[in-house]
Amino acid sequence: MGIFSRLADIINSNLNAILDRAEEPEKIIRLVIQEMEDTLVEVRSTAAKTIAEKKEIGRRLARLDEAQQSWEEKAELALTKGREDLAKGALVEKAKLAEAAAALQAELEELDALLRQGETDIAKLEGKLREAKAKQQALTARHETAGSRLKVRRTLYDGRVEDAFQRFEQVEKKLDEAEGAVEAYDLSGGGKTLAEEISELAAESAIEDELAALKAKVKKSKETGAADKG
C-alpha cells in the first residue's frame, strides 16, 4: 500500500513530519520518491491523453463547421429555386450540427481546464520530488558522516592502540630513570666526595714515606755488608 492515497496527499504532504514519525527514515524516503515518480508518470500520461482528446475534438469541430457551412449554402440554393421547404430543412440540419458543435466546444473547455490543472499539479509534484530527493541526500550524508565518526571512535578505543600507549609510557619511564642516574652521577663529581679524595692523598703519602724508609734500610744494609768484607 502506498504512503499517499491520492495526488493531493503528495502535494500537501509535510515530508519532515513523515520522516520524524518513521522508524527507518531512509527506507521511507525511498518509498516516497518511488511513489512520487510513479504518480508523476501517471499525471503526465493523463495530460498527454487530454492533449490528444483536445486535438480530436478540434478536428471534429472543424468538420462540423464545414458541414454547417454546407447546409447554409444548400438552404440558399433552395430559396433561389423557390423551394422554401427545402431551405427550412437545410437550416434544421444546420441547427443540429450547431448544437453538436456547442456540446463539443463545452467539452473542449473542460479539457482545457483539466490540462491547466494538470500542468499545475505536475509543477507542484516536481517540486515535491526535488524536496524529497534533497531530503534523501541529506539523510545519506548524515548516515555516511555517522559511519565515519563511528569508525574513528572504534579505532581510537581499539585495545591495540591502548597497548601501544602503555608500551610508550614504559619506555618513557625507563628513559627517565636513565637520565636521573646520569644527573645523579654528575652531581656527585664523578663518584668521589671531597673526603674520599683527601683520604686517597693521605694513603698515597703514607706509601711514599714507607717506600723511602725501605729504600734507606736497603741502602744501609748494603753499606754495612761492604764494610764487613773490607
Rank of each mutant, 00 (worst) to 15 (best):
G2M: 02
I3W: 11
F4E: 11
F4M: 03
R6G: 05
L7M: 06
A8N: 04
A8D: 13
I11N: 03
N12G: 08
S13M: 09
L15G: 00
L19F: 07
E24G: 11
E26P: 13
E26I: 00
L31K: 15
V32S: 03
I33L: 01
Q34S: 08
E37K: 04
E37P: 14
V41E: 13
E42C: 12
R44G: 07
R44M: 07
A47D: 08
K49T: 06
T50K: 11
I51P: 05
K54L: 15
K55Y: 06
E56Q: 09
I57S: 02
G58K: 06
G58A: 08
R59E: 10
R60W: 14
R60V: 09
R60Q: 12
L61D: 14
L61E: 14
L61T: 10
A62V: 08
A62R: 15
A67L: 04
E73M: 04
K74V: 06
K74E: 15
A78Y: 02
A78W: 01
L79M: 08
T80E: 11
K81Q: 15
K81C: 10
G82P: 05
G82I: 01
E84I: 02
D85H: 07
L86E: 12
L91R: 10
L91Y: 01
V92C: 04
E93N: 14
K94G: 15
K96C: 04
K96H: 08
L97I: 14
E99W: 08
A102P: 02
A103E: 10
L104N: 00
Q105V: 03
A106N: 10
E110H: 14
E110V: 07
L111C: 06
L111R: 09
Q117G: 07
T120G: 05
D121Y: 08
K124G: 06
K124T: 05
K124L: 13
K128P: 04
L129C: 01
E131F: 01
A132E: 00
K133A: 00
A138C: 00
L139N: 00
T140A: 00
H143E: 01
H143Q: 01
A146C: 01
A146W: 01
R149K: 09
L150C: 05
K151T: 02
R154N: 14
R154E: 06
L156Y: 07
G159R: 05
Q166P: 06
F168A: 12
L175A: 09
A178L: 08
E179T: 03
A181G: 00
V182P: 03
E183W: 01
A184K: 12
A184C: 03
D186M: 06
D186Q: 13
A195M: 06
A195V: 10
S199I: 07
L201T: 02
A202T: 09
E204N: 06
A206W: 09
A206V: 12
I207F: 11
E208W: 09
E208D: 10
D209F: 05
E210N: 03
A212S: 11
A213G: 13
L214P: 01
V218G: 02
K220D: 15
K220F: 13
S221K: 07
S221L: 09
K222Q: 10
K222F: 14
E223C: 14
E223Y: 12
E223A: 12
T224Y: 12
T224D: 08
G225V: 09
G225T: 12
A227I: 09
K229D: 15
G230E: 15
G230H: 15
